[in-house]
Design a protein around this nucleic acid. Structure first.
Lengths: 198, 198
DNA sequence: GGCCGACTATGACGACGGTCATAGTAGTCC
DNA sequence: GGACTACTATGACCGTCGTCATAGTCGGCC
């Protein structure tokens, strides 16, 4: 796997996110996480004395920060940065993965929300924080691109909602159709918001 | 609970959908389903010889048909039917539930997708069918409302994607904000599609 | 009555999960 | 060297889960 040589703790968080993405929270075992990370089983209780709950929460937090950080990188890489182009890039990350590696994984934050929102309140809070850590950079990017301030956050929420839903449908259908559709349909709406700054 | 007096089999399917909505597929036990439905445990293997997989698939199918059937009823109940009004009504079903009964439940199809898309192919197919059984009536409604035929299905996909994503975020945040936001932001786009039939 | 199918009712089994307890190793500082 | 801390390594416990097996009930039909 050529896991970059971070500490075993970080590797386990990363592996947890990977497995949760694929199988859901409940179906992901602690032993499985340790094995996937190439870490000893005993390290689990050493690094995560809070048990599975803590590990899952950290995996969700990691995923939220990861998604948030990518936004800036997307923006920097765009030759002609517009809101629609940013959204297309966010979507493209998923279509690329699905076409290259199959439809095995979804969004770990979505998985944690579905599996734990009702049963584990600390995880629910972690998912809310993850969505916030993702939405904020998107909204900031929108304002930077010329979207009026009061519309940036609603549009960011819309973008992430549509993306999450399309990921679900794409996995169900094993087809990127839903993803390309939302990118195509939402693009004009997003770019139109730029010109509204009267 | 005043479960309307259908047969025990149907009650178990319904109960399975309810529990999956709340806790996810993996965390929903067969015994729990039987208890919730007020049905004897032995009936499970009698009515669902295919085991949990069959029960989950039927629950997903039921949910898809249920969502599809509601579309027509929404349309009929709207005083001034437009695409935006239809979408607002679809969203309102969720905001009403969340405000009245709390954020306990999500969409059972989303839960099944997250938990089973990778592990259980028959359930993945059931979720794809459920999304199709939901998208088709929405697309049909859009054409009835004047949306050009070639845009009806993409827009229906966009509506359902945004709704599913907003449900996730709303549950995570315990706030209907995301739901009202997508309804508000997507409304103009949907209605604008009507006037495009040149 | 006797039979049979549909359904109910329980107990048991095997597997697996998360967690705990305990012991072992390695490196460091005194 | 010896104590101490960080980390590794396993085995065991106990609960729960899905499933199977077996037996029991009930109603109709010949």
């Amino acid at each position: 796997m050529a896991v970059s040589e971070r500490g075993p703790r970080e590797r386990m968080v990363f592996s947890a996110a990977q497995l949760i993405r694929r199988e859901g929270v409940a179906a992901t075992g602690m032993r499985e996480v340790a094995a996937h990370a190439g870490a000893p089983r005993g390290s689990l209780q050493h690094y995560f004395p809070g048990g599975k709950e803590q590990l899952v929460n950290e995996a969700v937090g990691w995923a939220g920060r990861y998604a948030g950080n990518r936004v800036a990188r997307f923006l920097a890489a765009l030759p002609e940065p517009t809101p629609a182009a940013l959204f297309a890039e966010m979507v493209r990350q998923w279509t690329d993965e699905y076409e290259a590696a199959g439809f095995a994984g979804g969004c770990p934050v979505a998985a944690a929300t579905v599996d734990c929102a009702q049963s584990t309140d600390s995880t629910r809070e972690a998912t809310a924080a993850a969505f916030a850590a993702w939405t904020a950079p998107v909204a900031r990017a929108l304002t930077d691109l010329g979207v009026p301030g009061e519309r940036a956050e609603p549009l960011a929420t819309l973008m992430i909602s549509a993306l999450e839903g399309a990921i679900l449908i794409a996995r169900a259908e094993r087809d990127v159709r839903a993803l390309t559709t939302v990118a195509h349909e939402l693009g004009p709406l997003l770019d139109a918001a730029v010109r509204e700054r009267t």
